[in-house]
């Protein structure tokens, strides 16, 4: 340490520290995204409904009411359908951990079997959108990337940003990032309209169109960084920051070196 402290007042100390700090900032740009696997359900329907009801009474009814009729702080779940339950519980948004402005994606509380049971129970209350099967979700076959991009920019980009990175809504709410979200959940969100998101009916945004949107999102997700580090794909704000910090920072560091007398 003594050795190091000798260099504390060295001319290069400040620029060097700056560079180290910059590298530190750079690494924090790495955002990890969790992936969640779901397993197919293979158990009898009525048994599932019963099991789902038990889970519901234990884990959900305090807010959503004993018969899922809703309460002061939570909406009614009658008629929201299995897709809604699968989305909310499968992505960990429900049960909500706290009463924040918006339920965030987190590790799910219930496993695939329990989620399926809950979905079956809620679906049994009144008809609603069903969970799309793998056959429906074959976006690779049924979707069109370019058309999906056009639809995305018309229907999704205003909230989720041009590259699906998410964006701000009013009063601290936000549209989450779409990167790393499973096709099933994107599809379910489109047909059920969770939280702030509106519903995109099958008549106005057809199932094929929805698959095209998913295909485009997956293409954007898989797209390598064609022009270098992306800095979040969130537009000119990070670009401006980098201009000042790294661009002008490096230039001033060189200018300081250039104008000091050699020893």
């Amino acid at each position: 340490m003594k050795h190091l402290s000798r260099y504390r007042r060295h001319r290069a100390a400040a620029p060097l520290l700056l560079i180290i700090a910059l590298l530190g900032i750079g690494t924090t740009f790495n955002v990890a995204s969790a992936t969640i696997k779901s397993t197919p359900n293979t158990f009898s329907r009525s048994a599932a409904i019963d099991e789902g009801k038990q889970i519901f009474l234990k884990g959900c009814s305090s807010c959503h009411g004993l018969n899922a009729e809703g309460g002061a702080i939570a909406p009614s779940l009658i008629g929201v359908g299995a897709a809604s339950v699968d989305f909310q519980v499968g992505t960990g948004r429900m049960p909500m951990a706290d009463m924040s402005t918006q339920a965030a994606r987190k590790a799910p509380v219930y496993d695939a079997r329990e989620t399926a049971a809950l979905a079956a129970y809620v679906a049994s209350l009144a008809p609603g959108p069903a969970i799309p099967g793998d056959e429906v979700l074959n976006y690779e076959r049924d979707g069109n990337t370019a058309e999906g991009g056009e639809l995305f920019r018309n229907n999704c980009a205003m909230c989720h940003n041009f590259a699906g990175q998410g964006g701000a809504l009013t009063q601290g709410k936000y549209a989450p990032t779409l990167m790393g979200v499973e096709p099933k959940y994107i599809y379910e969100a489109l047909i059920t309209g969770p939280q702030s998101m509106p519903v995109f009916s099958d008549k106005t945004l057809t199932p094929e169109e929805k698959l095209s949107v998913i295909k485009w999102i997956k293409a954007a997700e898989a797209e390598p960084n064609l022009g270098g580090a992306t800095m979040g794909r969130i537009g000119p704000v990070t670009e401006g920051l980098l201009t000042w910090v790294l661009g002008l920072g490096l230039l001033i560091a060189v200018a300081v070196w250039l104008t000091t007398k050699a020893r």
Binding site: G193, P198, V199, F200, S201, K203, T204, L205
Partner: peptide, 8 residues
């Protein structure tokens, strides 16, 4: 074609 809560 429009459900309650939907947008086009």
């Amino acid at each position: 074609d429009l459900e309650v809560g939907s947008v086009v």
